[in-house]
């Protein structure tokens, strides 16, 4: 199931790449600041929203039994080469006792590198993660990898995967985070 969803997410990225092939996206490199900032995204802020459920309404991503990643919002503050990255997700019910329906917070850093021209990028970095839901809680470290496609110099479509290791409720464990979420990211 996860493989199928990941396949569709990659397919969407490829489809966007083909559709906008004629657009002049190479302007990204021209917008590099004259102060010789190393990348167009240097000294910029980025906000990414999880649009998987919205995309499911248009493309067949909705496989039963599959859950998305817990991250709803990603924020990145890029310095020259490295970004401070904070990921959020929450659905908390404060009743008689504090019982998180779902909570996700990751703080870490990220680097971005170009794969192909000014269109395809990959990102990588490390984050400290604290997450929990009704079934389990995790405190750990995430090595994350992402793939992004620039629809526009300021708009990116991307997905993330990673390797999470840490304490899962009461056991030390390792988990592969599948790329089952699609993020629409804006830079400003």
């Amino acid at each position: 199931m996860k493989f199928k969803a990941s396949f569709w997410i990659i397919a969407i990225l490829l489809f966007c790449a083909v559709c906008s092939n004629g657009q002049e996206l190479d302007s990204l490199s021209r917008k590099v600041d004259k102060k010789e900032l190393p990348y167009p995204w240097s000294k910029k802020k980025e906000v990414a929203l999880n649009v998987t459920n919205l995309a499911k309404l248009f493309v067949p991503l909705n496989f039963s039994g599959l859950t998305n990643q817990d991250v709803i919002l990603k924020t990145k503050w890029y310095f020259k080469k490295v970004a401070l990255r904070i990921d959020f997700g929450a659905d908390i019910d404060f009743n008689d006792e504090f019982s998180p329906g779902g909570f996700y917070l990751a703080v870490g850093y990220e680097r971005r590198r170009a794969i192909y021209k000014d269109k395809w990028f990959y990102t990588t970095g490390w984050s400290g993660v604290i997450t929990g839901n009704d079934d389990e809680g995790v405190i750990g470290v995430l090595k994350h990898f992402g793939m992004e496609y620039n629809l526009h110099p300021s708009v990116t479509l991307g997905t993330d995967t990673g390797l999470l290791f840490g304490v899962f409720t009461d056991d030390f464990n390792l988990k592969l985070v599948s790329p089952t979420s699609l993020f629409l990211q804006m830079r400003f």
């Binding site: 999880n50 919205l54 709803i72 659905d91």
Partner: peptide, 12 residues
């Protein structure tokens, strides 16, 4: 009840 929720985009 009190609830805090972060809702991803679901509607167009």
């Amino acid at each position: 009840t009190h609830r805090f929720t972060i809702a991803e985009p679901r509607a167009l």
